[in-house]
């Protein structure tokens, strides 16, 4: 094999995507690009699927019927996102069953925020409002992904996410305008979720060193995403009279840049590798439900055959 010309072809591909070029399923792509796409998109799919578990815990405990219905609809959306995303991964060569195997065995990762328990209804509000807000910052940046089929489904996903954020904000507004106890529940939830939120966009690795950015799978550096989140949401949190548990959090009015206490990146690494407070519980639940519904697949495939 002529590796010299292979390299030239890869270089040409790299130049193409870096100039904003987009790639379709059937197009030639370097193996490394395909592998990076699978890893990135699969983790996104896993996160959508695992992300419903913290909220699922509250379907039966939602305070009103309207909230129960809205929460169920949000969860249905998130599972739908997982389905759309796993399909993109399948077209890149990794079957959904293989993705699910790697998820339940702990080999594949999912987002840090879904490794934490949901202790109160306040947590459910904060998740729908702020976790989804953090996620939509990343997902909006994926609309420009060099892999076009992923960018296309992101349009639909972002459209649905906007309802999630509003639903979350509405839950929070109901509580901060309610009793003192309700307000306290929200404040406690913000305190609990602030660290995971600061971890959410990852450590501030420079974009030029991030392989996901180099291949233009992502179009935004981690720190830029975090800054966008802080800029959009810190004022929205503070205007409700809520406090953010970081004394160092402040915006430099001249540069427009937020400074904050450096999050513990080791802790983030530990959480996403399965050592978070709810990691094991969530994975074993997913394992269980996978075994539980295995018969459906068998019946469906047999009937269609």
């Amino acid at each position: 094999m002529d590796t010299q010309s292979m390299d030239a072809r890869t270089q040409e591909f790299l130049d193409y995507v870096q100039a904003g070029g987009q790639v379709e399923t059937g197009d030639w792509m370097p193996d490394e690009y395909r592998a990076k796409l699978v890893k990135f998109i699969e983790m996104h799919g896993n996160s959508e699927l695992m992300g419903v578990l913290p909220e699922r815990d509250w379907i039966l405990r939602a305070p009103t019927l309207q909230r129960k219905l809205a929460l169920t609809a949000k969860i249905q959306d998130e599972v739908g996102h997982a389905q759309l995303i796993y399909r993109v991964v399948e077209d890149l060569g990794k079957p959904r069953s293989a993705s699910l195997d790697d998820l339940v065995s702990g080999k594949a990762k999912f987002h840090n925020v879904f490794h934490y328990p949901t202790k109160t209804w306040g947590d459910v509000g904060v998740i729908a409002w702020l976790v989804d807000a953090a996620a939509i910052v990343s997902q909006k940046a994926l609309l420009k992904c060099s892999y076009a089929p992923y960018a296309r489904i992101m349009k639909k996903i972002c459209w649905e996410e906007s309802f999630h954020i509003l639903h979350g904000r509405d839950v929070i507004l109901a509580m901060v305008t309610g009793s003192r106890e309700q307000f306290a529940l929200v404040q406690e939830a913000v305190d609990r979720w602030w660290e995971p939120l600061m971890h959410f966009h990852g450590n501030p690795i420079p974009a030029e060193e991030d392989p996901m950015f180099i291949w233009r799978i992502k179009s935004q550096a981690n720190e830029d995403a975090r800054q966008e989140f802080l800029d959009g949401y810190v004022p929205q949190i503070r205007e409700l009279g809520l406090e953010i548990p970081d004394k160092a959090l402040a915006k430099d009015e001249e540069t427009g840049i937020w400074s904050y206490t450096e999050p513990d990146w080791e802790k983030l690494r530990a959480v996403v590798t399965g050592h978070g407070p709810a990691s094991e519980e969530r994975l074993s639940f997913r394992r269980l439900s996978r075994e539980d519904v295995a018969w459906v697949e068998r019946v469906v495939l047999a009937e269609a055959a």
């Binding site: 399909r87 399948e90 077209d91 089929p149 296309r152 639909k156 469906v300 495939l301 009937e303 269609a304």
Partner: peptide
Amino acid sequence: HAGTVDAPDERFAEIY
């Protein structure tokens, strides 16, 4: 074009 579905047959494809 919106995306793709994987289904054992046309009936299921419609549902998905």
